[in-house]
């Protein structure tokens, strides 16, 4: 699903954010990307949805080569990836329903069709009763559920979560990780960037890729 070969990312005038790393992630895997702040976790995830391009090496996401991706084909790559952020990246003045609808509009779906897809997902994620509430009136945990709903609405092959529990208390954080873990059990590849040990220890069977100064220093999934 994701293949990384000798990947290096260097920003102008700064030290390498990622330094010659290689690994593969299979379909349906649940992977933690861990490491201290500045280790390169977010940079790595940004590469997978082409928010950033590699300086060297090859990155294949669903067999699409990110190193040579054209601007025109980036949207098609992203339609197959759901992304969740620490700061949620939701539109505060829009309702829960409207925020999730954004992800369906790019497919030019009709309103009825959108409702048929959004409402069951909101029930599944436990935020159905909040569907018409403005996002600014939601708690942090609810906001993250909305963000996850937006990421899941198009049934993506990959979910990338960048510190998804960073703004949540312990109980809400565990809820969110449980949700993402459940998604991976349904066949979606899930990569979570986090440095929270409670979260990492919740699913001990999960693969852990640990980064330090842009290098992979531990990969529990490596044969």
């Amino acid at each position: 699903m994701i293949k990384v070969y000798n990947l290096t990312v260097a920003f102008l005038g700064e030290k390498k954010a990622l330094d010659n790393i290689s690994f593969k992630v299979s379909k349906g895997e649940f992977v933690y990307i861990t490491g201290e702040s500045g280790a390169g976790k977010s940079t790595l995830l940004r590469l997978f949805y082409a928010d950033l391009l590699p300086s060297k090496g090859i990155v294949l996401v669903s067999n699409k080569d990110i190193s040579n991706i054209t601007k025109a084909s980036i949207p098609f790559l992203r339609r197959n990836i759901g992304v969740v952020f620490q700061d949620f990246k939701l539109l505060e003045d829009k309702s829960v329903f409207e925020n999730i609808k954004l992800a369906l509009e790019v497919f030019y779906l009709e309103k009825n069709n959108m409702e048929n897809r959004i409402l069951p997902l909101l029930r599944r994620l436990g935020i159905f009763s909040r569907r018409n509430t403005l996002v600014k009136n939601l708690s942090g945990g609810e906001k993250q559920r909305v963000a996850i709903a937006r990421a899941l609405i198009n049934n993506p092959a990959i979910i990338l979560a960048d510190e998804p529990t960073g703004n949540l208390d312990q109980a809400r954080a565990e809820d969110i990780v449980d949700l993402l873990y459940g998604t991976s059990k349904a066949g979606t590849t899930v990569l979570i960037a986090t440095h929270d040990p409670h979260i990492i220890n919740r699913y001990k069977q999960a693969r852990i890729i640990e980064l330090k100064n842009g290098k992979v220093i531990k990969d529990s999934g490596k044969q």
């Binding site: 949805y49 601007k71 025109a72 949207p75 098609f76 790559l77 992203r78 339609r79 197959n80 992304v83 990246k89 939701l90 539109l91 954004l102 992800a103 509009e105 790019v106 937006r150 198009n154």
Partner: peptide, 16 residues
């Protein structure tokens, strides 16, 4: 700006 970034994140084309 924020809305456009989100549209871009969920795969909106430039034409969209």
């Amino acid at each position: 700006k924020d809305e456009i970034k989100i549209y871009s994140l969920v795969g909106a084309s430039r034409t969209f």
